[in-house]
């Protein structure tokens, strides 16, 4: 009886301890003015229909990524591409950027067949499909790539 209780308690502790982790990085908040919406990442991942191979300068190698064309995603969420977006990430990074009409941007959910996690700078990451002629040794030329996206707020 005691063993059963201890076992149940252990499971409970384990579940409770994992709950916040489960809460971490499992959704994406979309904010449009007063309206705020939580998207479940699994739903977002289902929309990922673009698979491309690109060079990731932060990893120094080519990776195969799967994701959603970010412009299309924005149109689905906001009706049109907002002039600027404010991003909040899981590492408390905040930034506002514009110019999202460019179809070159891809919101990545999976890399080399594995879902992105925080340790692989996920669960959502914005990258450019074509990096053009930029110097891959200069990371500052890729500083508008957004990692660990937690929320996206439209700024009109």
């Amino acid at each position: 009886m005691n063993v059963a209780k201890i076992s149940a308690a252990c499971w409970l502790i384990l579940i409770v301890s994992w709950l916040p982790i489960a809460a971490y990085a499992q959704d994406l908040t979309i904010i449009d003015g007063e309206k705020s919406q939580q998207l479940v990442l699994s739903d977002v991942k289902q929309q990922a229909d673009n698979t491309v191979t690109l060079f990731d300068p932060y990893q120094g190698r080519e990776v195969e990524v799967r994701g959603i064309e970010f412009r299309r995603f924005l149109v689905e969420q906001f009706g049109e591409v907002p002039p600027a977006l404010h991003f909040t990430t899981w590492d408390d990074y905040n930034v506002t950027l514009s110019g999202w009409e460019d179809p070159n941007w891809l919101m990545v959910v999976e890399e080399d067949g594995e879902p992105l996690t925080l340790r692989s700078r996920g669960p959502l990451r914005l990258v450019e499909r074509d990096i053009g002629t930029r110097d891959i040794a200069k990371l500052r030329e890729f500083n508008d790539w957004i990692w660990m996206i937690r929320s996206i707020e439209a700024q009109w």
């Binding site: 502790i13 384990l14 409770v16 301890s17 994992w18 709950l19 916040p20 982790i21 971490y24 300068p57 932060y58 990893q59 120094g60 190698r61 899981w90 590492d91 996690t117 925080l118 340790r119 692989s120 700078r121 990371l139 990692w147 660990m148």
Partner: peptide, 26 residues
């Protein structure tokens, strides 16, 4: 409390992600 473990894990995951950069490894 065990709940702190999840926070510790979260911080370590972020630390790992920010350190796992090719230029640092090189």
């Amino acid at each position: 409390m065990p709940a702190d473990i999840s926070h510790i894990r979260h911080h370590l995951e972020l630390a790992y992600g920010l350190l796992d950069v090719d230029i640092y490894k090189q």
